[in-house]
Amino acid sequence: MTVQILFAAKEERWAQYEAPLRRALEGAGITDYVLSRDIAPEAVDYMVVAPNGPVQDFAPYRNCKAALNLWAGVENIIGNPTLHMPLARMVDHGLTRGMVEWVTGHVLRHHLGMDAHIHGQDGKWRKDIPPLAEERRVSILGLGELGAECADALRYLGFDVTGWSRSQKDLPGIRCLAGEEGLAEALGTAEILVLLLPKTADTENVLNAERIAQMPRGAVIINPGRGPLIDDDALLAALDEGRIAHATLDVFRTEPLPPEHPYWAHPSVTVTPHIASETRDETASRVIAENIRRGEAGEPFLHLVDPKLGY
């Protein structure tokens, strides 16, 4: 029977993904298929979906076996009351490696104090010797796929890495904490803090004034996770007071970040335009094709979202 696959994302994504998806489907042994942006709802077997795509009402797709998200984040789709089929989030090798490279680069940048040399070309001989990585304490909030990979990369470089997650994890060479007491401990030792939690009702404003106050004075915050994890007013106040030395932020409550937002002009903030990690069409297409192969073979889908947890 022909597998009917609806591509429910914006037109520019179709131009980007059509050829890689066809290659991936055929590579997964799926040769009898229709891949299109226009399939009658009742005929759709699988839906490749982006939360900002054309499908917002999932009720008509009553025979759809799974919605396969193009993005890692599912916060803008999981709460849709019409979503009745299983939802798989994107866990993509390319996305993961991109995040590891971005996080590692910015942790090293702050650890080594590179900004002072890059921006301080004023004739002053600044010979500030940084500590070794093994003497620098880094905490990562969120030990899912991305957080665990970043923690492992930083551990490999020699950093003293602590990880925190809602449920207890066990990762080789990483001090893993959980619960409210564990969060306070992770924050209390974080000379560099990396935020890689998903956006849920429980994680919004997880870094508020009270929790920022638990961090060592002069700490650095790096957020490539989700914008709403941070109380922006609390962070700006902590930066103004010098409690937090610098914040490197890749994600924001409103994107693109409005030109008038105080982050742009703050001397202790680095803004990057949501580039920490992007889904790569070739590798993401292989993840989608594998889930379709699994669905047709009666095997469990990969990376299913738990609606109760929100990720």
Rank of each mutant, 00 (worst) to 15 (best):
M1S: 09
T2W: 03
Q4Y: 04
I5G: 11
F7W: 10
E11A: 10
E12A: 05
W14E: 07
Y17P: 00
P20H: 04
L21M: 08
R23F: 02
L25E: 13
E26H: 09
E26L: 06
A28T: 15
G29C: 13
T31V: 08
D32S: 10
D32K: 08
S36D: 12
S36T: 14
S36I: 11
R37T: 09
E42P: 13
A50I: 08
N52L: 06
P54S: 04
P54R: 07
P54T: 07
D57R: 00
P60G: 12
L70K: 10
E75W: 00
I77W: 12
P86T: 15
A88I: 01
L95W: 02
V100H: 05
E101S: 04
W102H: 08
W102E: 00
V103T: 05
H106K: 02
H111C: 02
D115E: 03
D122T: 13
G123T: 14
D128K: 07
I129N: 11
L132C: 05
L132M: 02
I140T: 15
L141T: 09
L143H: 10
L143Q: 09
L143S: 05
G147T: 13
A148K: 10
A151K: 14
A151M: 07
D152F: 03
L154R: 05
L154Q: 11
R155P: 09
Y156E: 08
F159R: 06
F159S: 01
G163I: 09
W164Q: 01
R166T: 06
S167W: 01
P172M: 02
G173P: 05
G179A: 06
L183F: 01
L183K: 06
L183Y: 01
A184G: 08
E185D: 10
A186K: 01
G188V: 05
G188C: 04
T189A: 10
A190P: 09
A190S: 12
E191A: 03
L196W: 14
T200F: 04
L207D: 12
E210K: 04
A213C: 08
Q214P: 00
R217K: 12
A219F: 06
I221D: 12
I222T: 10
N223K: 13
N223L: 07
R226C: 07
P228H: 11
P228I: 11
L229A: 11
I230C: 12
D231W: 11
D232M: 13
D233C: 10
L235W: 15
L235V: 14
G242M: 10
G242T: 13
G242F: 13
H246G: 06
T248K: 01
T248A: 01
P256R: 03
P256H: 06
L257G: 05
E260M: 07
H261D: 08
P262Q: 05
P262W: 03
W264K: 05
H266M: 03
P267R: 08
T270L: 04
T270A: 03
A276K: 11
A276E: 10
E278P: 03
T279A: 04
I288V: 13
A289L: 15
R293F: 14
E296I: 15
A297G: 15
A297F: 11
E299I: 06
H303G: 14
V305M: 06
P307E: 00
K308G: 04
L309C: 01
